[in-house]
Amino acid sequence: MKNIWSLMKKEIGAYFSSPIAYVVISGFLLLVGYFFYSLVLWFNAQAMQMAQNPYYAQQININEMVFSPLFHNMSIILILVAPLLTMRLLAEEKKSGTDELLYTSPLSVGQIILGKYFAALVMLAAMLGLTALLSIFAFAFGNPEIAPWLTGYLGLFLMGATFIAIGLFFSSLTENQIVAAFLTFVTLLLFLVLNWVASSGSGTWQSVLSYLSFSQHFEDMTRGILDTKDVVYYLSFSFFGIFLAHSVIQSRRWR
């Protein structure tokens, strides 16, 4: 546990001693801020119109009209951002030869990988946490429901954790950061849209593909539905990514 903590501290320090953390966090905040602003503008215009009609006035819902689309947008941005957070984690150690220091220290491969994984999770949590500040305005001047907002953020965090685990795996495969980032991006995008083909398929295939797709499990969470099977999906996907990264490192040393 102490070893994981040591590595985690070092990795977080590395994020902030290079421009990566600042560039990625501010870019992410800029995009999310822009999306939030445009959604609120649209929501205002819609609400104004709908309020004219007593039937529609009932249906004005800030959670569905602002937060749900915002969370979807954020999940797409995360697909771009996660590879940037994970690309250097293992690839750079290999390239600069510092992996030799880590693997000849009394640390297990599992501790090394988990330390790096948790460091990236902290970055993710910090980024999501900062965007949550935007919602203060919505809560101050409106009355959104808190539950769907919370499950939406939980969904984003779980999905981001899965992205990071996949990124960690690709970072273990190569010493080239760009290759690691690009492969992560391609994989994440593929898994996000896996349910597109599912809609025109049938039977088992359809259900397997739509089960594997990221977006299927995220959908419910943005609406305030917290299902254990979605949580299990993200956790097992993350575990799988970490396990693969662990196997790659372990096998490399035994070759």
Binding site: S6, A14, T98, L107
Partner: peptide
């Protein structure tokens, strides 16, 4: 090692502190 394992973005004492921790 032959290629000295150094984290270039760390200070000398910061790096040695990290190595002390993992050792």
């Amino acid at each position: 090692p032959e290629v000295v394992p150094l984290y270039l973005d760390m200070t000398v004492s910061g790096f040695l502190g990290f190595v002390a921790e993992i050792k």
